[in-house]
Protein backbone atom coordinates (compact mmCIF):
# COMPACT_ATOMS: atom_id res chain seq x y z
CA UNK A 1 0.00 0.00 0.00
CA UNK A 2 2.77 2.47 0.89
CA UNK A 3 4.80 1.64 -2.20
CA UNK A 4 1.57 1.61 -4.19
CA UNK A 5 0.87 5.20 -3.14
CA UNK A 6 4.10 6.38 -4.75
CA UNK A 7 3.58 4.45 -7.96
CA UNK A 8 -0.17 4.92 -8.23
CA UNK A 9 -1.32 6.71 -11.34
CA UNK A 10 -3.89 9.43 -10.65
CA UNK A 11 -6.61 7.41 -12.39
CA UNK A 12 -6.58 4.81 -9.57
CA UNK A 13 -10.02 4.55 -8.04
CA UNK A 14 -9.82 4.49 -4.29
CA UNK A 15 -12.06 6.13 -1.75
CA UNK A 16 -9.54 8.20 0.18
CA UNK A 17 -12.01 9.55 2.70
CA UNK A 18 -12.93 6.14 4.11
CA UNK A 19 -10.72 4.46 6.72
CA UNK A 20 -8.60 1.84 5.02
CA UNK A 21 -9.90 -1.02 7.11
CA UNK A 22 -13.61 -0.30 6.90
CA UNK A 23 -14.34 -3.75 5.44
CA UNK A 24 -13.20 -5.32 8.70
CA UNK A 25 -15.75 -3.27 10.66
CA UNK A 26 -18.88 -5.41 10.27
CA UNK A 27 -17.15 -8.42 11.86
CA UNK A 28 -15.77 -6.22 14.63
CA UNK A 29 -19.22 -4.76 15.33
CA UNK A 30 -20.74 -8.26 15.42
CA UNK A 31 -18.06 -9.53 17.82
CA UNK A 32 -18.35 -6.49 20.03
CA UNK A 33 -22.11 -6.82 20.31
CA UNK A 34 -22.37 -10.59 20.66
CA UNK A 35 -19.03 -11.50 22.25
CA UNK A 36 -17.32 -8.65 24.13
CA UNK A 37 -20.45 -7.19 25.75
CA UNK A 38 -21.68 -10.64 26.89
CA UNK A 39 -18.31 -11.28 28.57
CA UNK A 40 -18.77 -8.08 30.59
CA UNK A 41 -22.23 -9.27 31.61
CA UNK A 42 -20.77 -12.53 32.96
CA UNK A 43 -18.47 -10.45 35.17
CA UNK A 44 -21.42 -8.44 36.47
CA UNK A 45 -23.64 -11.49 37.01
CA UNK A 46 -20.87 -13.29 38.90
CA UNK A 47 -21.15 -10.56 41.54
CA UNK A 48 -24.92 -10.89 41.91
CA UNK A 49 -26.91 -13.41 43.88
CA UNK A 50 -29.52 -16.06 43.23
CA UNK A 51 -32.90 -14.29 43.13
CA UNK A 52 -35.34 -15.02 45.94
CA UNK A 53 -38.37 -17.11 45.02
CA UNK A 54 -40.53 -13.97 44.85
CA UNK A 55 -38.19 -12.06 42.53
CA UNK A 56 -38.37 -12.23 38.75
CA UNK A 57 -35.36 -12.82 36.49
CA UNK A 58 -32.35 -15.11 36.57
CA UNK A 59 -30.21 -13.03 38.89
CA UNK A 60 -30.53 -10.42 41.60
CA UNK A 61 -28.13 -7.50 41.21
CA UNK A 62 -29.41 -5.55 44.24
CA UNK A 63 -26.30 -6.24 46.28
CA UNK A 64 -23.01 -7.03 44.61
CA UNK A 65 -20.44 -9.17 46.40
CA UNK A 66 -17.63 -11.64 45.81
CA UNK A 67 -19.38 -14.36 47.81
CA UNK A 68 -19.90 -16.54 44.71
CA UNK A 69 -16.14 -16.68 44.23
CA UNK A 70 -15.69 -17.74 47.85
CA UNK A 71 -18.28 -20.45 47.40
CA UNK A 72 -16.64 -21.70 44.18
CA UNK A 73 -13.36 -22.22 45.98
CA UNK A 74 -14.61 -24.21 48.94
CA UNK A 75 -15.41 -27.85 49.55
CA UNK A 76 -16.41 -30.03 46.67
CA UNK A 77 -16.25 -27.20 44.09
CA UNK A 78 -12.60 -26.53 44.90
CA UNK A 79 -11.85 -30.24 44.60
CA UNK A 80 -13.36 -30.32 41.12
CA UNK A 81 -11.23 -27.31 40.11
CA UNK A 82 -8.10 -29.16 41.24
CA UNK A 83 -9.16 -32.37 39.44
CA UNK A 84 -9.91 -30.39 36.27
CA UNK A 85 -6.48 -28.75 36.21
CA UNK A 86 -4.82 -32.10 36.94
CA UNK A 87 -6.78 -33.93 34.23
CA UNK A 88 -6.12 -31.21 31.66
CA UNK A 89 -2.43 -30.90 32.63
CA UNK A 90 -1.77 -34.62 32.62
CA UNK A 91 -3.79 -35.04 29.41
CA UNK A 92 -1.67 -32.35 27.75
CA UNK A 93 1.58 -34.02 28.80
CA UNK A 94 0.44 -37.48 27.67
CA UNK A 95 -0.79 -36.06 24.35
CA UNK A 96 2.61 -34.40 23.84
CA UNK A 97 4.49 -37.63 24.62
CA UNK A 98 2.31 -39.60 22.22
CA UNK A 99 2.04 -36.85 19.63
CA UNK A 100 5.62 -35.61 19.27
CA UNK A 101 7.01 -38.87 17.80
CA UNK A 102 4.02 -38.98 15.45
CA UNK A 103 4.65 -35.45 14.20
CA UNK A 104 8.37 -36.24 13.97
CA UNK A 105 7.78 -39.38 11.91
CA UNK A 106 5.32 -37.55 9.66
CA UNK A 107 7.68 -34.63 9.00
CA UNK A 108 11.03 -36.45 8.71
CA UNK A 109 10.44 -40.11 7.92
CA UNK A 110 7.41 -40.23 5.66
CA UNK A 111 7.84 -39.59 1.90
CA UNK A 112 6.61 -36.10 0.95
CA UNK A 113 3.78 -37.35 -1.26
CA UNK A 114 2.17 -39.17 1.69
CA UNK A 115 2.29 -36.24 4.07
CA UNK A 116 -0.81 -34.35 2.95
CA UNK A 117 -2.73 -37.63 3.02
CA UNK A 118 -1.68 -38.17 6.66
CA UNK A 119 -2.65 -34.61 7.61
CA UNK A 120 -6.00 -35.26 5.97
CA UNK A 121 -6.42 -38.48 7.96
CA UNK A 122 -5.44 -36.65 11.13
CA UNK A 123 -8.29 -34.14 10.82
CA UNK A 124 -10.77 -36.61 9.39
CA UNK A 125 -12.06 -37.73 12.83
CA UNK A 126 -13.18 -34.12 13.35
CA UNK A 127 -15.64 -34.58 10.53
CA UNK A 128 -17.58 -37.14 12.49
CA UNK A 129 -19.65 -36.23 15.49
CA UNK A 130 -17.51 -35.45 18.52
CA UNK A 131 -20.29 -36.85 20.70
CA UNK A 132 -20.52 -40.16 18.93
CA UNK A 133 -16.75 -40.64 18.86
CA UNK A 134 -16.72 -40.09 22.60
CA UNK A 135 -19.72 -42.36 23.04
CA UNK A 136 -17.90 -45.08 21.08
CA UNK A 137 -15.40 -45.20 23.94
CA UNK A 138 -18.26 -46.27 26.21
CA UNK A 139 -18.74 -49.27 23.94
CA UNK A 140 -15.00 -50.00 23.85
CA UNK A 141 -14.44 -49.60 27.58
CA UNK A 142 -17.62 -51.35 28.74
CA UNK A 143 -17.02 -53.88 31.56
CA UNK A 144 -18.69 -56.55 29.42
CA UNK A 145 -16.98 -55.41 26.20
CA UNK A 146 -14.37 -57.00 23.95
CA UNK A 147 -11.43 -55.00 25.30
CA UNK A 148 -12.33 -56.03 28.83
CA UNK A 149 -12.45 -59.70 27.75
CA UNK A 150 -9.11 -59.48 25.95
CA UNK A 151 -7.33 -57.79 28.86
CA UNK A 152 -8.84 -60.27 31.27
CA UNK A 153 -7.86 -63.35 29.28
CA UNK A 154 -4.32 -61.97 28.90
CA UNK A 155 -4.21 -61.74 32.67
CA UNK A 156 -3.55 -57.98 32.57
CA UNK A 157 -6.54 -57.22 34.77
CA UNK A 158 -7.98 -59.36 37.54
CA UNK A 159 -11.69 -58.83 37.14
CA UNK A 160 -13.56 -56.70 34.65
CA UNK A 161 -12.37 -53.42 33.12
CA UNK A 162 -13.89 -50.88 35.49
CA UNK A 163 -12.60 -47.52 34.31
CA UNK A 164 -15.86 -46.30 32.78
CA UNK A 165 -17.51 -43.47 34.74
CA UNK A 166 -14.28 -42.59 36.51
CA UNK A 167 -11.63 -39.92 36.03
CA UNK A 168 -9.42 -42.47 34.20
CA UNK A 169 -11.94 -42.74 31.35
CA UNK A 170 -12.16 -38.93 31.18
CA UNK A 171 -8.37 -38.78 30.98
CA UNK A 172 -8.37 -41.23 28.07
CA UNK A 173 -11.18 -39.37 26.30
CA UNK A 174 -9.32 -36.07 26.64
CA UNK A 175 -6.07 -37.46 25.25
CA UNK A 176 -8.00 -39.07 22.39
CA UNK A 177 -9.98 -35.98 21.44
CA UNK A 178 -7.14 -33.45 21.56
CA UNK A 179 -4.29 -35.55 20.15
CA UNK A 180 -4.66 -34.12 16.61
CA UNK A 181 -4.66 -30.59 18.10
CA UNK A 182 -1.28 -31.44 19.64
CA UNK A 183 0.20 -33.18 16.59
CA UNK A 184 -0.66 -30.61 13.89
CA UNK A 185 1.24 -27.55 15.19
CA UNK A 186 4.31 -29.69 16.03
CA UNK A 187 4.18 -31.24 12.56
CA UNK A 188 3.96 -27.82 10.91
CA UNK A 189 7.02 -26.61 12.86
CA UNK A 190 9.05 -29.78 12.14
CA UNK A 191 8.11 -29.82 8.48
CA UNK A 192 9.51 -26.31 8.01
CA UNK A 193 12.95 -27.28 9.33
CA UNK A 194 15.61 -27.12 6.67
CA UNK A 195 16.85 -30.72 6.55
CA UNK A 196 20.37 -29.58 5.65
CA UNK A 197 20.68 -28.15 9.18
CA UNK A 198 20.25 -31.65 10.60
CA UNK A 199 22.80 -33.08 8.16
CA UNK A 200 25.21 -30.25 8.96
CA UNK A 201 24.91 -31.01 12.66
CA UNK A 202 25.67 -34.69 12.02
CA UNK A 203 28.56 -33.83 9.69
CA UNK A 204 30.04 -31.61 12.37
CA UNK A 205 30.18 -34.60 14.69
CA UNK A 206 27.05 -34.32 16.81
CA UNK A 207 25.31 -37.65 17.36
CA UNK A 208 21.62 -38.21 16.70
CA UNK A 209 20.69 -37.43 20.32
CA UNK A 210 22.68 -34.22 20.41
CA UNK A 211 21.30 -33.15 17.02
CA UNK A 212 17.78 -33.77 18.28
CA UNK A 213 18.23 -31.85 21.54
CA UNK A 214 20.24 -28.95 20.17
CA UNK A 215 18.87 -28.51 16.64
CA UNK A 216 15.52 -30.21 16.11
CA UNK A 217 13.90 -29.50 19.46
CA UNK A 218 14.65 -25.74 19.60
CA UNK A 219 13.38 -25.37 16.03
CA UNK A 220 10.19 -27.29 16.88
CA UNK A 221 9.65 -25.35 20.13
CA UNK A 222 7.10 -22.82 18.78
CA UNK A 223 4.91 -25.61 17.41
CA UNK A 224 5.24 -27.66 20.57
CA UNK A 225 4.32 -24.66 22.70
CA UNK A 226 1.30 -23.94 20.50
CA UNK A 227 0.15 -27.54 20.78
CA UNK A 228 0.60 -27.60 24.56
CA UNK A 229 -1.33 -24.38 25.14
CA UNK A 230 -4.13 -25.25 22.73
CA UNK A 231 -4.61 -28.73 24.16
CA UNK A 232 -4.55 -27.50 27.74
CA UNK A 233 -7.08 -24.73 27.17
CA UNK A 234 -9.46 -26.97 25.24
CA UNK A 235 -9.16 -29.81 27.77
CA UNK A 236 -9.69 -27.61 30.82
CA UNK A 237 -12.93 -26.22 29.40
CA UNK A 238 -14.28 -29.54 28.18
CA UNK A 239 -17.83 -30.52 28.98
CA UNK A 240 -18.68 -33.35 26.58
CA UNK A 241 -16.00 -35.86 27.58
CA UNK A 242 -16.63 -35.77 31.36
CA UNK A 243 -20.39 -35.79 30.75
CA UNK A 244 -20.26 -38.93 28.62
CA UNK A 245 -17.34 -40.84 30.12
CA UNK A 246 -17.03 -39.49 33.65
CA UNK A 247 -20.34 -40.31 35.31
CA UNK A 248 -20.61 -38.76 38.74
CA UNK A 249 -17.04 -39.64 39.71
CA UNK A 250 -15.34 -37.92 36.79
CA UNK A 251 -16.76 -34.38 37.01
CA UNK A 252 -14.89 -31.37 35.64
CA UNK A 253 -15.50 -27.62 35.96
CA UNK A 254 -17.55 -27.65 32.76
CA UNK A 255 -20.08 -29.98 34.40
CA UNK A 256 -20.24 -27.86 37.55
CA UNK A 257 -20.92 -24.68 35.58
CA UNK A 258 -23.56 -26.34 33.41
CA UNK A 259 -25.27 -27.87 36.44
CA UNK A 260 -25.39 -24.58 38.33
CA UNK A 261 -26.80 -22.70 35.36
CA UNK A 262 -29.04 -25.23 33.63
CA UNK A 263 -30.25 -27.38 36.52
CA UNK A 264 -29.83 -25.51 39.83
CA UNK A 265 -30.88 -22.15 38.36
CA UNK A 266 -27.94 -20.54 40.11
CA UNK A 267 -26.65 -18.37 37.29
CA UNK A 268 -24.47 -16.09 39.49
CA UNK A 269 -22.55 -19.04 40.97
CA UNK A 270 -22.08 -20.59 37.51
CA UNK A 271 -20.88 -17.24 36.16
CA UNK A 272 -18.34 -16.90 38.98
CA UNK A 273 -17.01 -20.40 38.26
CA UNK A 274 -16.67 -19.55 34.57
CA UNK A 275 -14.75 -16.36 35.41
CA UNK A 276 -12.49 -18.35 37.74
CA UNK A 277 -11.87 -20.89 34.99
CA UNK A 278 -10.63 -18.31 32.48
CA UNK A 279 -8.75 -16.45 35.19
CA UNK A 280 -6.95 -19.63 36.16
CA UNK A 281 -6.23 -20.58 32.53
CA UNK A 282 -4.87 -17.11 31.84
CA UNK A 283 -2.63 -17.30 34.91
CA UNK A 284 -1.26 -20.73 33.95
CA UNK A 285 -0.70 -19.80 30.32
CA UNK A 286 1.02 -16.54 31.32
CA UNK A 287 3.24 -18.30 33.86
CA UNK A 288 4.28 -21.03 31.44
CA UNK A 289 5.02 -18.48 28.69
CA UNK A 290 7.07 -16.34 31.08
CA UNK A 291 9.06 -19.35 32.28
CA UNK A 292 9.75 -20.48 28.72
CA UNK A 293 10.78 -16.99 27.71
CA UNK A 294 13.15 -16.86 30.69
CA UNK A 295 14.56 -20.31 29.91
CA UNK A 296 15.20 -19.26 26.33
CA UNK A 297 16.88 -16.04 27.39
CA UNK A 298 19.20 -17.99 29.71
CA UNK A 299 19.84 -20.61 27.03
CA UNK A 300 20.76 -17.92 24.53
CA UNK A 301 23.08 -15.96 26.80
CA UNK A 302 24.91 -19.08 27.93
CA UNK A 303 25.36 -20.31 24.33
CA UNK A 304 25.94 -16.91 22.83
CA UNK A 305 24.53 -18.24 19.55
CA UNK A 306 21.29 -16.63 18.45
CA UNK A 307 18.87 -19.09 16.91
Amino acid sequence: MTEGAALAPPARHRARLLPRWIMAWPALAWWTFFFVIPLLWILLYSLGSKPAATEAGAVSLATLSFSNYGESLTGVFFKVFVITMRTAGLGTIIAALIGFPVAYAMALHVPARWRSMLVFLLILPYWTSFLLRTFAWRIILAPQGTLSDVLHSLGLIGGRLLILDTNAAVQLGIVYNYLPVMILPIYVALERIDKSLLRASMDLGAGPVRTFVQVTLPLAAPGLLGGLLLTFILAAGDYVVPTILGGTKGLMVGNLVATQILASQNLPLGAAMAVLLIGLLFLIVATVSALLWLARAIFRSSRGAPL
Binding site: F35, P38, I42, L234, A236, A274, L277, I278
Partner: peptide, 17 residues
Protein backbone atom coordinates in the same frame (compact mmCIF):
# COMPACT_ATOMS: atom_id res chain seq x y z
CA UNK B 1 -9.27 -14.56 22.14
CA UNK B 2 -12.46 -15.65 20.36
CA UNK B 3 -10.81 -18.86 19.14
CA UNK B 4 -9.04 -19.58 22.42
CA UNK B 5 -11.59 -18.78 25.09
CA UNK B 6 -13.33 -21.85 26.56
CA UNK B 7 -16.56 -22.26 24.62
CA UNK B 8 -18.39 -22.63 27.90
CA UNK B 9 -17.60 -19.06 28.94
CA UNK B 10 -18.62 -17.60 25.61
CA UNK B 11 -21.83 -19.68 25.74
CA UNK B 12 -22.86 -18.36 29.17
CA UNK B 13 -22.25 -14.78 28.11
CA UNK B 14 -24.37 -15.21 25.00
CA UNK B 15 -27.17 -16.84 26.95
CA UNK B 16 -27.25 -13.96 29.45
CA UNK B 17 -27.04 -11.30 26.74
Amino acid sequence: VILGIPELVSAIGQMIW
